[in-house]
């Protein structure tokens, strides 16, 4: 019993230590990431799917601020722009995306903040 328990605990601890700082809590806000999976006790196998930039897949040369439906998935319900680590957007496209979102906000296509 004791021998069985010890390795289990060790593996649990090591995996928890590895995953801890990065995952920073499973309830990390809305727009949850896929691939996190249900974290079962004892067996922790994080097979995180590699996120790819959606705009790179589409080979987008520019992001149109007039198409609010394209930009909508990249903002939170409260109106905040989602960070790259949540959406997997590459740095170049994130730069364009933030500009596009801010323009759309100015012309009332997207909200600055959720209304009460």
């Amino acid at each position: 019993m004791a021998e069985e328990n010890a390795p289990q605990q060790q593996s649990y601890g090591s995996s928890g230590g590895g995953g801890g700082p990065r995952s920073s809590g499973p309830g990390g806000g809305p727009g949850g990431r896929p691939g996190g999976g249900p974290a079962k006790r004892g067996k922790r196998s994080f097979v995180r799917k590699k996120k790819v930039c959606r705009f790179c897949v589409d080979k987008a040369d520019f992001i149109d601020y007039k198409k609010a439906e394209i930009l909508a998935p990249f903002i939170q319900e409260r109106g905040k722009i989602l960070p790259r680590r949540m959406t997997g957007t590459c740095s170049r496209h994130q730069r364009w995306l933030t500009v596009a979102i801010k323009r759309a906000q100015n012309i009332a296509l997207l909200p600055f903040a959720a209304e009460l």
């Binding site: 609010a68 906000q105 009332a108 296509l109 997207l110 600055f112 209304e115």
Partner: peptide, 16 residues
């Protein structure tokens, strides 16, 4: 429909 209220109105006529 606008994303937020402008001059207390929720809708607007857009021209591009």
């Amino acid at each position: 429909r606008m994303a937020y209220r402008v001059q207390k109105l929720r809708e607007g006529y857009y021209v591009y």
